[in-house]
Amino acid sequence: MKKVRITMIGNLILAGCLVFLLFFYEGPQKQATNQVADKGTSSTDKAEQIVGNNCVTCHGQNLQGGAGPNLTKIGSKYSQSEIENIINHGKNAMPAGVIPPEKAKIVSEWLSQKK
């Protein structure tokens, strides 16, 4: 009986580790893929990729708004430096640092052209 219980506990621990690896661990392959993708694309493609990976959850697939504001004409409201500042430091419900500063510069340049 005691051996069966230990085996069950061991199996549960292994299953928990497997679930973690399957759903949460991204590993070095994903990071390497992103670095390769960044080298061969234009700044517009990079910006769209960054936004697609980080911003559409709140701002919508077409930046039409959702939990976050509509960004389709954000360039007519804010300058590139203001947009970059909002990305880096947050504003209202938007948290600071959603994307790293070097990517914030690329995205802010792209968004500032949306007028």
Score class of each variant (00 low, 15 high):
Met1Glu: 15
Lys3Arg: 14
Lys3Asn: 14
Val4Arg: 14
Val4Phe: 12
Val4Tyr: 08
Val4Thr: 13
Arg5Ala: 15
Arg5Asn: 06
Gly10Met: 15
Leu12Met: 11
Leu14Phe: 10
Leu14Ile: 15
Ala15His: 10
Ala15Cys: 11
Ala15Glu: 10
Ala15Lys: 10
Gly16Phe: 07
Leu18Ala: 12
Val19Leu: 15
Phe20Glu: 12
Phe20Pro: 03
Leu21Asn: 10
Phe23Met: 11
Phe23His: 11
Phe23Lys: 09
Phe24Ser: 06
Tyr25Trp: 08
Tyr25Gln: 11
Tyr25His: 15
Glu26Val: 11
Glu26Pro: 06
Gln29Phe: 08
Gln29Asn: 14
Lys30Asp: 12
Gln31Glu: 10
Gln31Cys: 04
Ala32Asp: 12
Asn34Trp: 06
Gln35Thr: 10
Gln35Val: 11
Gln35Tyr: 03
Ala37Arg: 10
Ala37Val: 15
Asp38Phe: 08
Asp38Cys: 06
Lys39Asn: 12
Lys39Leu: 13
Gly40Trp: 11
Gly40Leu: 13
Thr41Ser: 11
Ser43Leu: 12
Ser43Asp: 08
Ser43Gln: 08
Ser43Gly: 07
Thr44Phe: 04
Thr44Tyr: 04
Asp45Lys: 11
Ala47Phe: 02
Ala47Pro: 00
Glu48Cys: 02
Gln49Lys: 08
Gln49Ser: 09
Ile50Asn: 00
Ile50Phe: 01
Ile50Ala: 00
Ile50Cys: 00
Val51Ala: 05
Asn53Leu: 03
Asn53Trp: 00
Asn54Val: 02
His59Lys: 05
Gly60Trp: 02
Gly60Val: 04
Gly60Asp: 04
Gly60Arg: 01
Gln61Trp: 01
Asn62Cys: 03
Asn62Thr: 14
Asn62Lys: 08
Asn62Leu: 11
Leu63Thr: 03
Gln64Tyr: 07
Gln64Pro: 01
Gly66Val: 13
Ala67Trp: 13
Ala67Ser: 13
Ala67Leu: 13
Gly68Leu: 12
Gly68Asp: 10
Pro69Asn: 08
Asn70Pro: 06
Asn70Ala: 05
Asn70Arg: 03
Leu71Cys: 01
Leu71Arg: 02
Thr72Val: 12
Lys73Asp: 15
Ile74Gln: 00
Gly75Gln: 08
Gly75Pro: 03
Ser76His: 09
Ser76Pro: 06
Ser76Lys: 15
Lys77Ile: 13
Tyr78Pro: 01
Tyr78Thr: 13
Ser79Cys: 09
Ser79Met: 13
Gln80Arg: 13
Gln80Leu: 06
Ser81Ala: 10
Ser81Arg: 05
Glu82Thr: 13
Glu82Asn: 05
Glu84Tyr: 01
Glu84His: 04
Ile86Lys: 06
Ile86Thr: 01
Ile87Phe: 02
Asn88Gly: 02
His89Phe: 07
His89Ser: 14
His89Ile: 11
Lys91Asp: 14
Asn92Thr: 09
Asn92Tyr: 05
Ala93Glu: 09
Ala96Phe: 06
Pro100His: 07
Pro100Gln: 13
Pro100Glu: 05
Pro101Asn: 09
Glu102Tyr: 05
Glu102Val: 08
Lys103Gln: 15
Lys105Ser: 14
Lys105Tyr: 07
Lys105Glu: 07
Ile106Gly: 04
Ser108Lys: 00
Glu109Gln: 15
Glu109Asp: 14
Trp110Met: 04
Leu111Arg: 06
Leu111Ile: 03
Leu111Trp: 03
Leu111Lys: 02
Leu111Val: 06
Ser112Phe: 03
Ser112His: 07
Gln113Cys: 02
